[in-house]
Design a protein around this nucleic acid. Structure first.
Lengths: 235, 235
DNA sequence: GAGTGGTCTAGACCACAGC
DNA sequence: CTGTGGTCTAGACCACTCC
C-alpha cells in the first residue's frame, strides 16, 4: 500500500538496520536506482532524502550516497515513538502498570495544558514503566474525550499509541517535546524507585492532529540517572 | 545567492517570524505561489516542505497551507544553533568567558570521544556562559587541529560556530546530541553557580563534516533548573 | 572526460475538502 | 463540480569528484 518512494525508503531502512548494508558502504547511484525500481529520478531522490533526514545515509555531491555509522541504535526517544517500540529495540524486559484510568472534567491546570476550557471531558491515565526490575518512569497522559471516546485498562497496558493510530485511525501530525529537570514531587517518590534522587527529568509532550488541533498532553517523569535523549540534526 | 526554493522559504520565514503573517492564516495556494515567483510547482513545494519540516506551517490536503501557532519563541535548542544566536533570540544579557584554550595531544578519553588515535593534535576550549548574572553553563569543546588549524581567544569569546562556518568555510553536515543527567564534578562546582544542585544536565554534541567525518566533540554542562530543551517532530 | 548528486521545469493523474 | 495538496514523469542544466 506504500507509495513508490516509501517502498524504496523502507527497502533501504530494512537493508541498513538488518546489517545487510554495512556502515560506510555506497548505495547505487540515483540513476541505477531509477532503473532498478523503474521510476523517475525525483522519486528515487525523495526516498534518499527521507533516508538522509532520518540519519541513515549521507549524500555527498559528486560522490554518491553512503550508509552512516549507526552507533548501536541509540535509544531514539527523538521523534514520535512509543514506549513499547523503544523497549523492544533495547531488548530489555519491561513492564507497564496502569495506576489509574479516569474519565473526568479538566481542572484548570490540565485545561491550560490542553488549551481547552475547564470542565471539558478528558481522559486521565497514569502509568509507571518498569525496566529490568526498576520502576523509573511515571507517565501521565491526558486526552480529549471528543477525540478518544473509549479507553480501557488493557489498551493502556499495551500501547495507547498503537490503539490511536491503528484502531481509531487518528491522524497524528506533529508533536512538540519539552525537556526540563524539576524537583521530585511526593507522587514521584511514591510511584518510582527514586533511590534518593531529589529531581526528575520531565518530558512534556504536546501531540497535534492534522488540523493542528492539540488533542493529547503527556508528562513523562524519569529518574535522572536512567534518562537518555538523542537528537539528530542536519544542516 | 540563494536557490529559488530557498528564496521562497526565507521570504516566508521572515513573514511568519516578523508577525506579518499571523498564526492560523492561510498561505497562497501552490499554484498561486508558482505564478508569484515565476517557478514550477515542485520548486514551490520544496520551499513549503522546508517550512513544514521546521514547524512553521502545516499543510492540509484539499485545504491549503496554514501558519502554525509559534508559542512564545520557544528556546529552540534543537538543531544546530549557536549559543550566541540563542542568547540573542531570548533577549537576555549574556556573556561568554574563556577559561582555557589549549593546543594539545588527545588523551585516551578525548580520543575515544572523537574516535581518533591518542596523541592526535587537538584544540581544547573550556568556556562558561553567564546569563542575567548567573553562570549556568560550562562548555568544553574539542576540535581536530587537522580541520581547524588556528583558534584564538577572541574567536572563542564571540562564536566559534560562526568562525568555522563563515571564516573557515567548514562544511558542517550533521550533528548528534545526547542528553543525560549526571553527578556534578568538582570542576562543575568550581566553574558554575550551582546553588547546591548535586547534578548537572550534560549535552554531548558530536559534529560531523560533509564526508561524515567527526571533527568536533562538545560537552555542555547545565545547571538543572535553567535547562530547557525543545524538540519538534513530524510524522 | 565520465559519473555523481543538486536544482528546475512543464506537464500529468490522483485523493481530498467544500460547495 | 472546483480547488487544493500528494505523487510521479522525462527530460534539462549545473557543480562537484575523480581519473
Amino acid at each position: 500500500m506504500d507509495n513508490k518512494y516509501l517502498q524504496i525508503y523502507h527497502d533501504y531502512v530494512e537493508k541498513i538496520e538488518s546489517g545487510a548494508l554495512r556502515s560506510q558502504s555506497k548505495l547505487p547511484s540515483e540513476h541505477e536506482l531509477c532503473q532498478q525500481y523503474g521510476t523517475s529520478r525525483e522519486t528515487v531522490r525523495k526516498a534518499l532524502h527521507l533516508l538522509s533526514q532520518n540519519g541513515l545515509i549521507q549524500k555527498i555531491k559528486g560522490k554518491g550516497s553512503f550508509v552512516l555509522p549507526v552507533e548501536q541504535m541509540d535509544f531514539p526517544v527523538s521523534g514520535l515513538v512509543s514506549f513499547k517500540e523503544l523497549a523492544a529495540k533495547m531488548g530489555k524486559p519491561s513492564q507497564t502498570r496502569v495506576i489509574s484510568l479516569e474519565a473526568l472534567a479538566a481542572d484548570d491546570k490540565t485545561a491550560s495544558y490542553l488549551r481547552v476550557k475547564s470542565t471539558t471531558p478528558i481522559w486521565k491515565v497514569v502509568r509507571t514503566r518498569t525496566i529490568s526490575g526498576e520502576t523509573i518512569i511515571l507517565d501521565k497522559d491526558y486526552f480529549l474525550q471528543q477525540i478518544v471516546p473509549k479507553l480501557t485498562v488493557s489498551v493502556c497496558e499495551s500501547s495507547i499509541y498503537e490503539y490511536l493510530e491503528e484502531e481509531l485511525d487518528i491522524p497524528i501530525s506533529f508533536a512538540k517535546k519539552e525537556i526540563t529537570v524539576e524537583k521530585a514531587t511526593a507522587e514521584d517518590r511514591e510511584c518510582l524507585d527514586l533511590e534518593g534522587y531529589p529531581m526528575v527529568v520531565v518530558v512534556r509532550n504536546y501531540v497535534h492532529l492534522e488540523d493542528a488541533m492539540l488533542f493529547q498532553y503527556t508528562e513523562s517523569r524519569h529518574r535522572p540517572d536512567k534518562f537518555r535523549f538523542i537528537d539528530f540534526a542536519r544542516r
